[in-house]
Design a protein around this nucleic acid. Structure first.
Lengths: 152, 152
DNA sequence: TAGTATTAGTTTATAACTAAACCGATAGAA
DNA sequence: TTCTATCGGTTTAGTTATAAACTAATACTA
């Protein structure tokens, strides 16, 4: 599956891939740590924020959809939701075999408080780039998402 | 520390930051999973590959340096190295209070086998982008690494 | 020389994630 | 109707990471 395309790649391109991956994962590592740190005083992890943001936007969303949107396994979603349910942030309504997830009042309050903060924080993370460069980066990332093997 | 710069950001830029972060972490999530999957048949995790690659390049490197290069905590490095030592891939030589890490023969063999494979694999991950775009992306990531708060 | 700070690495508890096995409900085919 | 497949979600065991507390060694200071 991978090997099919390999031979048409230049040595340069091969090197580039590894370098890109290293850079990207270093940036991600640093960033996720700072994000967790930043969210600590609202008792939220980066992962939980992701869930909060998605549920907040989509109002009612299934666990399956959440797991697709966030690119994590459904097992992981279950675990996160159990915690967030205990914390009173979300509720789950079973309908047939599907769980519909939505924010509680408390969840909404937190959402309204924390999303703008997080927006600012993330803006700051990328402030080393000009607005034009940020748009450029976004487009490149969008393009990557459509890569042939991007359907895991 | 963060708030200092916030006010000069446009609404557009604030949104962009969050969007960039979402895209980036989705891509990272998918990618790390595929990487782990790809490395499974050599009994290596993505994290262990990172260590193998760094030690392979730098010949002798301290744990401290490793933790800086890989942007992970020293506790994490300790744990990874214990495993890799058990697996016979690396050795640690204590000198004063510093551990110098290097590859064993077996580690070198694996290094030579796995680095080219990984280069190809990563090239494939980014093959949705042209070579020019990949260079662009690399430059953007480099620039990000120099962000003011990038000294965590 | 004692007293304190710093440094390299380890340990411990915990969060977040995965893969894989599992449960129970629906749906399709014999 | 039964048999099988699929689907949404849960559970479990194991990995990878963190933060924070710790040890032991060196180095600074007075």
């Amino acid at each position: 599956m991978v090997d099919q395309h390999i031979n048409r790649l230049s040595t340069r391109e091969k090197r580039l891939g590894l370098m890109l991956w290293f850079r990207l994962s270093r940036f991600y590592n640093r960033s996720i740590r700072q994000t967790n740190d930043f969210l600590k005083d609202v008792q939220l992890s980066a992962a939980q924020f992701d869930v909060l943001a998605q549920v907040g936007v989509h109002k009612e969303i299934t666990q399956q959809e959440l797991s697709h949107k966030l690119f994590v396994t459904k097992g992981n979603i279950t675990q996160l939701l159990v915690k967030m349910e205990k914390a009173g942030l979300i509720q789950r309504k079973k309908e047939w075999r599907t769980n519909y997830v939505s924010l509680t009042k408390q969840g909404k309050v937190l959402y309204d408080e924390v999303v703008p903060r997080q927006e600012m924080f993330q803006a700051e993370q990328f402030s080393g780039l000009s607005e034009a460069e940020q748009v450029q980066l976004l487009n490149l990332l969008k393009k990557l998402q459509k890569t042939p093997e991007g359907n895991g």
